[in-house]
Design a protein around this nucleic acid. Structure first.
Lengths: 129, 129
DNA sequence: ATAGGGCTTCCAGCAACTGGAAGCTCAATA
DNA sequence: TATTGAGCTTCCAGTTGCTGGAAGCCCTAT
């Protein structure tokens, strides 16, 4: 399979697939003409990566997970640790965004949004109590 | 004021303050010895930036907001538009993270986390329905 | 005089791509 | 058969918002 078809089938842009090869996440064969030749295993790996990335795992986490996936003698606890830590990070991020949302939505609600310059958003940002 | 004191008082690292000068967000004066000399207005601007960044505004948004802040003839509607769009972006981000959280927490819950290799997290990532 | 801390600049690197240029290859058409 | 045009290749640069480090000047205190 050429890179274009792999891109179509996985939904991962060709550019990104090349990047993943660059950083050693996939190692497709090469044809005599220099084109990458993807096997089904490469396709599966890329689909795996696509799903892991969609769940927000970092590239390094993806590398780890892919390694565990291909390691017959893995222990599910190893996978669970990675996923649990990521889950906690997501949770922290959500909390942080919700805090921003809360603050900002109050400010926005208080802003008239008219032709006059007075604005509680700017007041708050400028340190006005 | 030297950069160190400004950093202490605003909580913004000196490195970051220099970076903000680089990209034109602040323009401190210079002493004859080459040191940056920050006035109170610079301090206020940096504090403003710190708060805006803490609310998740992008640097470009910060530039806009700072411009509006300093513009006597602004209209609060201009501020409100920037803030409202940012609020919507935060909302989208929260929704995305919550979706990830939901999926991943289900998978984590289903994982035994023991010495055996079987793991629903990897099964899911590998495309197992 | 010297030690230290603070200040300066510049260069590089992080994550995870993405865009673009220059150039080769291949399949299909005129 | 010659030539399009799409698809492939590599490499370099840029994105966002810093952050670290090196080399070197400045200032104060001992």
């Amino acid at each position: 399979m050429n890179i274009g078809e792999v891109a179509d089938r996985t939904g991962i842009p060709a550019k990104t697939i090349r990047y993943y090869e660059d950083i050693g996440l996939v190692r497709p064969m090469r044809r005599p003409n220099g084109y990458r030749a993807f096997r089904d295993t490469d396709l599966h790996k890329l689909a795996f990566l696509g799903r892991a990335r969609a769940l927000g795992f970092s590239i390094e986490d993806c590398r780890t997970l892919l390694g565990l996936y291909e390691n017959e003698s893995r222990e599910s606890s190893q996978v669970k640790i990675v996923a649990t830590e990521h889950l906690a990070a997501i949770d922290r991020k959500i909390a942080q965004l919700q805090s921003m949302y809360k603050t900002l939505s109050h400010l926005v609600d208080g802003c008239q949004g008219d032709h006059r310059p007075d604005c509680p958003i700017l007041s708050d940002l400028s340190g006005n109590p």
